[in-house]
Design a protein around this nucleic acid. Sequence first.
DNA 1: GTTTGACCAATTGCGAAATCTGGTCACTCC
DNA 2: GGAGTGACCAGATTTCGCAATTGGTCAAAC
Lengths: 236, 236
Amino acid sequence: MAAAKQQQRAERILDAAAELVLRWGYKRVSIEEVARHAGIGKGTVYLHFSTRAALFMCVLMRESLGLVDGLVAAMRADPAAILPAEQARVTYLAVMGRPLLRAMFTGDVEVLGELAGDSAGQPLRKLKIDLADELFELLRDRGLMRTDLDAETQRYVLNAVQAGFYLYPPAAAPSVSPQMAAAALAHVVRHAVQPPGPPDTGTLAALAPQVIAMYERFRRSMAIAVTGDAPVRLPS
Amino acid sequence: MAAAKQQQRAERILDAAAELVLRWGYKRVSIEEVARHAGIGKGTVYLHFSTRAALFMCVLMRESLGLVDGLVAAMRADPAAILPAEQARVTYLAVMGRPLLRAMFTGDVEVLGELAGDSAGQPLRKLKIDLADELFELLRDRGLMRTDLDAETQRYVLNAVQAGFYLYPPAAAPSVSPQMAAAALAHVVRHAVQPPGPPDTGTLAALAPQVIAMYERFRRSMAIAVTGDAPVRLPS
DNA sequence: GTTTGACCAATTGCGAAATCTGGTCACTCC
DNA sequence: GGAGTGACCAGATTTCGCAATTGGTCAAAC
């Protein structure tokens, strides 16, 4: 069978799995149900994904790749998007607009089940740390990030702050729209890790391509890290 | 029986309940076990606390009162402790040093069980909001807090940021000590909601008594809000 | 060569029986 | 005579064994 055709079928399976996991939650969705929704036999699913967990990990991975693509697009459109505050804002809005990403970022056990704390995401976390280290070194060197905190603490600060905005129950602040929340998050990140005053436009424009390249390398590593054990690869 | 003697026995019951809930978790601790550990009969517990939930709410309340006392002490010792960044730091360290407070702030379901999301804490939350509103108005008026965000957004920001530092799994940043984490939190809060530059010492000293008074009023309302339905009051 | 669904071991779900526990109150003891 | 107690009860929770489901395989169908 043509590779393109197979690719298309894999996408259909992922579509079905994504829809079902959102509607019923990970633990209540069986492989057979996914197959039925994709209009294929159960065995065929295993021609694409080695295991149930691998299938759903791929669903999450596809979402994550979409997020990275969104960030890259934002940086292409405006070099200022390489700044931590803008990254945080764009990420927040993208996550809030995609239920599966939101479930991932909030560690929603109802939706993700045991997939939430899965150790399969561990190598991916390592990649994220490496990306952050590389990115921070560049931004700090060029005066786009503060140096009054060491890089590791800065990474901790950004992780903790973002965790807060994702996890703080929106029910406790009903009048805050996603846009306002994203703006508030950007405000905090900007003042916490960026120098006062507007960034230098020239520096931004000069750095953007490098940062985009980092993200694209990150994107490739990501895809490999998760599809490594699956019979069929995700679209690269 | 002398009121003082009763008071003392109530404390013993609370001690026993606190120890047991930490060791086994809320749902696994029975009233009878608490009574046994306190060296009294089961019925006697009900002379002090109208219900099981009320007993454990009082345990949590006593911890919370201790936290408020710590804040007040810090403000008495140094007027700069009225600043949001210092409040956040002192609170963080106090919470991390007391297992029960940590369980409360992290919403630890293992320890607190259904007490975690209990609606009994609802009126208390309202009190906290009122305190924050009052405090922010004062600090903003006197130039100790920024006014580039409206007060409600500032409250949201502080809640979200603090939630992040409490909830972000320390396992993900093992090399960060509580002191460093507290310093990082203070850094974020200072830059997010306080004006640049050092605060005016005279203003701090002038405001401290007012802020302390607010906290003491808050402390009294707190105690009333929770012990309202219990046969015996907590120490005031 | 590709796709499938019957098949199997293992896990999960379920319902009823057994146990436990929050809360009460008649009784004891000082 | 009132403070303290533990036996008692209804309702909640846990246990346990059986039944149904499902992840994953593979021989057969196409």
